[in-house]
Design a protein around this nucleic acid. Sequence first.
RNA 1: CGCGACGUCGACUAAA
Length: 350
Amino acid sequence: IFTFNTLIDALCKAGRMTDAAQTLQLMVEKNVNPNVVTYSTMIDGYGKSGKGPEAMELYRKMREANVRPDRVTYNTLLDIYGKAGMLAEALNICQEMERAGWKTDVVTYNALIDAYGKQGNFRQAGKLFEDMKAVGLKPNVLTYSALIDSYSKAGRHKEAQAAFEDFKRAGLKPDVVLYSALIDAFGKNGMVDEALMVLREMMREGIQPNIVTYNSLIDAYGRVGQVDRALKTLETMKGVGISPNCVTYNTVIDAYGKEGRAEEARQLFKRMQDDGATPDAITFSALIDASGKSGDTPGAVRIFREMQDAGVKPNVVTFSAILSACSRCGTCEDAAILLSEMRNSDGHVY
RNA sequence: CGCGACGUCGACUAAA
């Protein structure tokens, strides 16, 4: 059973849910009964691949098979609902968990704090943080990262910083994620100097910035219009052996666009491909927006075509960007054509 | 009865 569980977990983590489901099937055929770990693993896998309904369906089957969910199962379900923004359902799971005789733990609170934070409800996130301490649970690094991120997303850099001080007073050791979250909190508020100070502190503590840390910094430069420094940071990361990824390029491309430098955005797009980074819908949307904002509607439409040729699926943001590009220059015909394409592409956009 | 073992939580990018 360990073998099967480990295999299923590996398949889930690789996003191969079909194979994972077949493995579960195979288990049953071999008369190995799936246990609570098997089910929890699969449920988590479905959740992580955006298949919430399948996750819940499997949860139902699990109980039909008389396998009792445990703390991990409940926390997994709670996190799936939380990530989907379904907080009422998440809280229901919490109650169900307690009714089944399980105590909520640090993971439960961390997942809830994260969920509220992502909704912009930093007050509730902060309240949960107090609650967990009140019931005698010790916040860990993940708790603080989620809390800091909650404040960051709500534009509350002061509270984010206060949480960080509190963290250090609690005698916990910050890691790269926590530092990056703080850097991002400052960056999102245009406080590049403070972000850089955090970077220096983390390096002084011997913690190496990773790709996300660099991406956050690049984003910070972009937000204050320092595209050239953003690009320089991209080069710096290459210099220390970190290959820029799709997010890195997207961030700089967007920064060029926001500065009205659409041509440089397109050049970077070429470099990105030479570098072996695969453009995604965000890349193209940023490029379309860059052309649109610089008044180049035909250019925006050309990029949209290029996107289709590349086989990248446009989404609502892509269409929104191209429509506003068209509306700026009054080419209603183009807009009408694109609108019909968006119906074809997705059946249910609007 | 105790203990151990596989599964759960945190940071970065696009339009309005």
